[in-house]
C-alpha cells in the first residue's frame, strides 16, 4: 500500500502530464486511501481509526498559520522523494553518461557523415538572422539550465564529496540562483522557437523511410551510402523539435510552479512538479547531447548553418534534397553574395 498512490500516479503522469498538472494534483485526495472517510467517521469512537485517518491525511483545527498547517501527516511527498531518489536521480546519471559515451563509441566506429561530393563553396541561405538569434539564446539558456540543474540533482553525489564545504555551498547556491533567473529566458526563447519553427516541422510520410535507414548516417553494412529523402528538417530533427516542444512545456510549467513559493501550492503539487521537472530534464538533456554531437562532429558542414545562416549547396542536396529541389523550383533559393 505504501508507495502505490504516488507511484501509480507517476506512471499515469507520463502520458497525460498536462491534464494532471492542471486538474488532479491540487487535491489531497491522492493521499487518502479508499477507506478514509469511513475511518474518519469511525475515528470518533476508535483510537486506531483516528490514527489511521490522521495518517491518511486527515486535517484538524489549529491556530498555526501557513498552508496545510492543520494536516498532521502527509505521506505523499515522501513517496515522491522515493521515486526521485530511486529512479530519477540514477536515470539522470545514465542519461548523461550513457548517451554521451554511446555517441563517442558510435563516432569512433562509424566516423562522421562526410559530404560525398565535398564542399561546393556555394552557400545557400537556410536560416534568417532572427532564427540564429533565437537558436543561440535558446541554446545558451538551455545549457545554463542543464549544467546548473545537473548540479542541483547530482551535485551532492558527484561533486560535493570532492570539494570543501564552503566551495560546495557557493556552487550549489550559485547553481540555484542561475537556474532560477535563466529559466524565464529559456521560456521566452522556447516559445519563439516553437511558434516560429513549427511549420517547418510537420511530420511527412518520407520521414518514416528516413528512420528505416537511420538517416543515412551509418557508414557500414546495408545502410552505407544511403541518402533518404528529407525536407527542410529531417526526421531526426523533427523528433528533437517535438521533444523540446512537449517537454519544454512540461519543464516550463513545472519550473514556474517550483520557482514561485508565493503560489502556496499543496505539497502534492510541488512534489509532482519536481518529478515532472526532473523527468522532462532527463529527456531534454539526453536529446541535447545527441543534438550537439550531430551538429558539431557527426554531420560535416552542418555547423555552418547556425554560424552564418548559410549552408553549402552540396550539403543541402545531400541532407535536405526535397527542400533544395523545392526552393530551386519556386525561386526562393538565395546564394550568399
Amino acid at each position: 500500500m505504501k508507495l502505490t498512490s504516488l507511484r501509480s500516479l507517476f506512471a499515469s503522469l507520463v502520458l497525460p502530464l498536462v491534464i494532471l498538472m492542471g486538474l488532479g494534483l491540487s487535491t489531497s485526495a491522492l493521499a487518502a486511501d479508499g477507506q478514509n472517510s469511513q475511518q474518519i467517521a469511525n475515528a470518533k469512537t476508535s483510537d486506531a481509526d483516528l490514527w489511521r485517518a490522521v495518517k491518511a491525511g486527515d486535517s484538524g483545527y489549529t491556530v498555526a498559520q501557513g498552508s496545510e498547517a492543520g494536516v498532521l501527516i502527509n505521506v505523499v511527498g515522501n513517496e515522491g522523494k522515493n521515486i526521485k531518489n530511486e529512479y530519477l536521480t540514477p536515470a539522470m546519471g545514465v542519461a548523461v553518461l550513457g548517451v554521451f559515451s554511446a555517441f563517442l563509441i558510435f563516432y569512433f566506429v562509424n566516423g562522421p557523415s562526410k559530404l560525398t561530393k565535398g564542399f561546393s563553396g556555394k552557400m545557400v541561405l537556410r536560416w534568417s538572422k532572427a532564427d540564429l538569434i533565437i537558436h543561440w539564446v535558446l541554446a545558451i539558456s538551455c545549457l545554463g539550465l542543464i549544467f546548473t540543474g545537473i548540479n542541483i540533482m547530482l551535485g551532492k553525489h558527484i561533486l560535493q564529496p570532492y570539494v570543501g564545504e564552503g566551495v560546495w555551498a557557493a556552487l550549489i547556491y550559485g547553481s540555484k540562483t542561475i537556474h532560477d533567473y535563466v529559466g524565464p529566458l529559456f521560456i521566452v526563447s522556447w516559445i519563439l522557437c516553437v511558434v516560429k519553427w513549427m511549420p517547418l516541422q510537420t511530420l511527412k510520410m518520407y520521414d518514416l523511410k528516413w528512420f528505416l535507414v537511420v538517416g543515412g548516417y551509418i557508414n557500414f553494412g546495408p545502410f552505407k551510402g544511403k541518402h533518404p529523402d528529407s525536407g527542410f528538417a529531417n526526421a531526426g530533427e523533427k523528433m528533437w523539435f517535438w521533444t523540446l516542444a512537449i517537454f519544454g512545456l512540461f519543464i516550463s510549467v513545472s519550473g514556474i510552479m517550483l520557482v514561485l513559493p508565493g503560489l502556496d501550492l499543496p505539497r502534492e503539487a510541488s512534489m509532482a512538479a519536481l518529478l515532472i521537472h526532473g523527468l522532462s530534464a532527463i529527456i531534454i538533456i539526453a536529446f541535447t547531447i545527441v543534438h550537439i554531437w550531430m551538429a558539431t562532429v557527426l554531420s560535416e558542414g552542418g555547423m555552418e548553418c547556425m554560424k552564418s545562416g548559410y549552408c553549402d549547396e552540396n550539403w543541402a542536396v545531400q541532407h535536405h534534397n526535397l527542400w533544395y529541389d523545392e526552393i530551386k523550383e519556386n525561386g526562393t533559393l538565395e546564394y550568399k553574395d
Binding site: 498547517a69 511527498g77 515522501n78 520557482v259 513559493p261 508565493g262 502556496d264 505539497r267
Partner: peptide, 22 residues
C-alpha cells in the same frame, strides 16, 4: 529550494519568505 518541505510528512520545515524566484 523547498524540497525538504515537500518531502517531510509532518510539515516541519518552514521558510521566512515567499518571494518570487525561489
Amino acid at each position: 529550494c523547498g524540497y525538504c518541505l515537500y518531502a517531510c510528512p509532518f510539515g516541519a520545515p518552514q521558510f521566512p519568505k515567499k518571494g518570487a524566484f525561489g
